[in-house]
Design a protein around this nucleic acid. Structure first.
Lengths: 188, 188, 188, 188
DNA sequence: AATGAATGAGGCTTCATTCAT
DNA sequence: GATGAATGAAGCCTCATTCAT
């Protein structure tokens, strides 16, 4: 049943976020999902397959959230605000998923397909910036670097919130959004 | 001998950065350090003690680098540039150490003392910002949030460089430094 | 399966009697039981849990053997003979179990429950003696001391037999039983 | 120095009584003795050599105590009383040594010489009994069996005292001595 | 003689995975 | 499809012993 599959993915997410991939035992995931170990292995051939499936599920989810909200014809400043807002909404709605995706270092067990997916959103964003640089709205320089700075700031904010070190009410969200824009904005 | 202790810490750093804490076997660290397992346990009572010693060693090193460079009487913009530069120099000089400290999620095995040390530098920076806010140079809002945005952007930049996704020559460094300052700078 | 559990307990008994608790390796027990190490840990959470389970199993067995045989209404001399005989039968039928229970020093790994069980049979016997002292059949003095003397003599006999230093045919058994009774008997 | 040798033997006794031979680590003995591990190995070639030396030291001590006190020309009842008393004095004066010798199962690591020494005292006692049987003072039957019963009763008494289960003041000692004699005494 | 850091085989235990039910 | 007992390789750590100082 697809229901069990989801239960397993949810349990795996909770465990991996708490203890990391190598720190989590497969039977522990099965127990938390309320299924037998054998059942887990019916749905996922191995622990590696499971973690990759989990990674892709949520990378897809966040990408879908962003692409769905994206306004292709709006001005760049508005596009930025929407993309930033979609990611913020996602991170607040699924804190564990975001923590799993961005606060952990997955390199040693992600397969090629998962790693490719990792960069899809970033590539899209970098492209967006290149256009805006031509218009003189965004600072000159490697768009990848600018995008990584923005994304890093965003992750830093979410991490601080997640770890209880920073409030994130509406006012703080507006402040942070503007601050992130200032990273790339060409000064008038 | 203190020499062996350092060899073990170096080997542990290399292993932990590659495969994570739980993904690294103790005998693997010993082998890489060129010592027997027993010797490793002679110097560090357990794998947990080892990882905490490693964490503190490098957190102290980076804090020392920043505090040594810090110019107490300089204007805030200059202080920012110096602190940012000290961290950048450190990250480029000790990429593994920086990756270990900031690119991995340590929560599940750091002890209280290590966790306290984790925030020392951030607290200092936040304090620095509070002063500058009063002068109207830095944006209003929770200083912690601003500082986390800056720190996040910095880590994002280093991570991208570390993973080969962003160049970081002198020009890019200047660009990134200015972009990080713009995060917190009050617009004129 | 309960069958495997018993196989493990039997193997543990054989190993512990030969080499002692600390002198026995867990994989050795598993091998002797014909199971994998993991299976052993499936049934017993640790080596300590295993040795306590083994201790209780046989303490219960010997207590059941004695209590089942005990004739509540018979005269004291007959009660003594029956109890002594039940213990002797048990010791000869399960020499390894008796050696494990009484010839080894368990203090350093028995838990509270096992230790409590250790004294149940002795307490019962001491109570039995108190009654007989009132009747003038048994020597005056601390019943615990008398009981320990009898029990010690019994263990010494079994140990000597177990180590091949004393025969224990029917005649010797009768002699020993009478000798043990003489320990506590009030001389006419 | 012989002094250090004794310190090591004393420390080993304390450790072995508490945790058994296999449960005691050599460095632990060295630490308790206040010497380095290397020093311990200068005096005793191995852990096995150490435990055998310890065993012999105390087996010799108890044998000497008994043989010194033994009155060759006294009547058997008096000889018994003296031997019993010498052993009792020894057990109360050196409780750890007695516990080590008689409450632990040493078979798996004692060498041939130690094992031979183990039975010297018992052989002597058995011989003593044979003479007395001829005189009709002691029960007929295998002298070894009678002796083991007496020795077992004695050990049971000391063990109960050692474990805090039986008082052993002057009155109790007299009672126990008489009870032990009754084990072998021919009833009038 | 005395020391204790160093060693690595071996001990206890975990865990990814399989398979009979 | 679901289960969980069973497995043994591999992980963390200990400890008897050595050896350079």
């Amino acid at each position: 049943m697809a229901e069990r599959r989801e239960a397993i993915l949810d349990a795996a997410l909770a465990c991996f976020v708490d203890q990391g991939f190598h720190g989590t035992a497969v039977p522990q995931v099965a127990k938390r999902a309320g299924v037998g170990v054998g059942t887990l292995y019916h749905h996922f051939a191995s622990k590696d397959v499971l973690v990759n499936a989990l990674f892709r599920k949520w990378k897809e989810a966040i990408a879908r959230a962003v692409f769905t909200a994206f306004p292709p014809t709006a001005p760049i400043r508005e596009q930025f605000r929407v993309v930033w807002g979609a990611m913020k909404d996602f991170a607040l709605a699924h804190p564990d998923a975001f923590a799993f995706l961005e606060l952990h270092h997955h390199a040693s067990y992600l397969d090629a397909e998962s790693q490719a997916m990792d960069n899809r959103l970033k590539d899209f964003t970098a492209t967006m910036l290149t256009q805006a640089q031509a218009d003189g709205i965004v600072k000159a320089g490697p768009p990848t670097l600018l995008m990584e700075l923005v994304f890093g700031a965003f992750v830093g904010m979410i991490r601080a919130h997640w770890e209880g070190r920073a409030p994130l009410g509406p006012d703080e969200q507006d402040l942070a959004e503007q601050a992130c824009w200032d990273i790339i904005a060409e000064r008038i």
